[in-house]
Design a protein around this nucleic acid. Structure first.
Lengths: 371, 371
DNA sequence: ATGAAAAATGTAAGCGCTTACATTTTTACT
DNA sequence: AGTAAAAATGTAAGCGCTTACATTTTTCAT
């Protein structure tokens, strides 16, 4: 409950055009007009007005004009609660993300929202603070509030939840991960493979002592997969995967800083530190600077996500680029088609490696810079 | 439309206790139960069930127990659309903030949301990208969607909007600013006075050539007030307020960086740069480092807001601390009481100066570091 | 022209809930 | 015990909209 950011987002615009300022001015009369008022004023039935608003192609051009003109004149706008009650759908989609404290999910969710907007839907965002129990609570809240569909992060959750959603016929798309073995609808990327690629690059630079700063690998399947990816690469390169030095913490700049220092204070300090995401990596970079270590001469650092922070950091981050925007967009499309009774396919998006300035060859001498 | 982040937030929890996992499991039967189902199962009328849920004190303890037990057993949860339609209120509050791209509003809005939550309300957040036209559109969308009340940032907007809200009887609280001269309900702080205090401190450090990086002062009244505050201090100190070098830009780290460089490339480069907010200041600090200027020896920099970024920056920022959390909380309380028919009073919160490491005495010699 | 099919429109039954008002039960005095 | 007032409960009328179905109008091939 505690740290949760909250939020529900929405963006402006209506399905049918209404002059905005007119809307603010017109209809100086007392009450807020209803659909019935419009019908009366236009001399048609409520059914026709409703059709003009929702399925304009099922109505004569002439009727449409009259009705829309009346709508404008009266400054009518539909009551969403009534519409939702009668139609049995709210045109609201819920998204539950682990955190809003940093920008990890911002870009993807924004794209998701934009695409939803295109389809006349509103997004409601809730945050789970990386806690499964809170996520469950949020799922309940959102569905009870009438969400027509849900966006969730990752695969890992109580199977009961999937049953619950299925029973309520609420489609859900799982994002930020992709596992062909899982049958549930998902739009994401392969965390393990992505991190493996980056790790291979690190290895190719001659690093053999590798450290890793990651989020909790028990509850967070994306984090776990990324660590797996590093181990995969090590194994493939003939190294012992269990030599990977893993430091678990939470996603924040400060935590990354602390974890990095802890890694550097070890006897067998790694020459490359692969971070579970960019936020952690930025913290690591800051710590390195504070320790007077030069990047990448003394130590290499990598990130994951390629959020804005990555390029804006002291030293631009070498990281994995995730196509967040496309992911959000595709997720929205998948959900929309699911709502409309179709059966969308899962999609796995490719990631790329973004070479910037924090990865270099492993240092030759073990030049120490105890500060 | 373009850059808008989206978002609507919500946090879990119901007014009445329902075992969560039970909820996910129970009621394996076909349909989703309605209030009428509960009434039938409990052997009471729908009115009584409704009262158990909404006004438990108007019901016998015994009845309450029976009903709640039935609610639990059936896994009933109310249909919000129906409730909203029947009750004429949605328990949804809208907030329209200029941006979600950075953390400027995050803390305050989060506190706002938390307080709302306490009162059983859900928050819907929309963003206006600092554009008045988009803000108007959002206000319309949110009210049409049924928001019971609105949180808005600053005072400056078309008076028609206030009329529109008044007509619809939708209370609105203006935040992030405070002007006793304005009669509209507000919960905020005095931007002008706050910045003036900080400027006085800068002046006291011997700076006479002062630069300022700010957001657009035409559309953004908070930004304008802050610049005014600097001028006030200069004037009071016997300096010519028009000597203030003002650089207008948008709020982003990069923009702050660029603006700072521009300021430093002038003949009459300022010895102190006061930034309109912390984001800009962090950019300025980064630019200064890049230019090999030492802070605060070569140049002083100040921020505004005291967001997390401020203390996490390369050099911890001297800035104005704004009690964001209390502001959000008070704003929520004000709105809740307005919804309940009361007439809450505006409140102005005090700000404090947060002395950290970016403000120092004006340099003696004009030591130049052209890079 | 004529009639069957297609298109447009109208009628009216809810969607699931709240709440004013009516009725019944309980409480608290005398 | 008896009664008026208070408390609890029930009855039923909507809230504003969508939509199945019925009806009317238009279209179009013959």
């Amino acid at each position: 409950m505690a740290l949760m950011h909250f939020h529900a987002l929405t963006r402006a615009s209506e399905n049918y055009p209404i002059g905005l300022m007119e809307e603010f001015t017109s209809s100086t009369l007392g009450e807020i007009p209803t659909l019935a008022d419009v019908a009366a004023a236009a001399g048609v039935s409520t059914a026709t007005v409703s059709r003009c608003l929702n399925t304009p192609d099922r109505v004569t051009k002439k009727t449409l004009n009259i009705v829309m003109e009346t709508v404008d004149r009266l400054g009518y706008s539909p009551n969403y609660s009534a519409r939702a009650l009668a139609a049995g759908r709210t045109n609201t989609i819920g998204a539950i993300i682990p955190t809003m404290e940093n920008a990890i999910f911002a870009r993807g969710i924004q794209a998701f929202q934009e695409e939803l907007q295109e389809n006349g839907c509103t997004l409601l965002v809730a945050s789970s603070s990386y806690r499964q129990d809170l996520e469950e609570e949020q799922i309940k809240t959102l569905t009870v509030r009438g969400a027509d569909a849900l966006l969730l992060i990752g695969y890992q959750r109580d199977p009961k939840i999937y049953e619950y959603l299925e029973k309520r016929k609420i489609p859900a798309v799982l994002t930020w991960a992709s596992d062909p073995a899982e049958k549930h609808l998902s739009v994401g990327f392969n965390n393990r493979r992505a991190m493996r690629s980056l790790a291979e690059l690190v290895l190719k630079n001659g690093h053999t002592k590798i450290g890793c700063i990651t989020a909790d690998t028990i509850a967070n399947d994306r984090a776990r997969d990324r660590v797996h990816g590093i181990r995969d690469a090590m194994e493939a390169a003939g190294l012992d995967p269990s030599d990977l030095i893993v430091q678990e913490t939470q996603y924040s700049i400060n935590k990354g800083d602390v974890a990095f220092r802890s890694l550097m204070s070890r006897e067998d300090r790694p020459t490359a530190v692969m971070c579970g995401n960019d936020v952690l990596a930025v913290g690591a970079v800051r710590a390195a600077s504070a320790l007077n270590m030069s990047i990448p001469d003394d130590v290499s650092i990598t990130g994951f996500d390629d959020i804005e922070l990555a390029s804006v950091a002291n030293v631009p981050l070498t990281t994995v680029h995730v196509p967040h925007r496309r992911m959000g967009q595709f997720a929205a499309q998948a959900l929309m088609s699911a709502i409309n009774g179709k059966t969308p396919q899962s999609v796995e998006l490719p990631t790329t490696i973004c070479r910037r300035n924090t990865l270099g060859p492993a240092p030759k001498a073990s030049k120490r810079n105890r500060s």
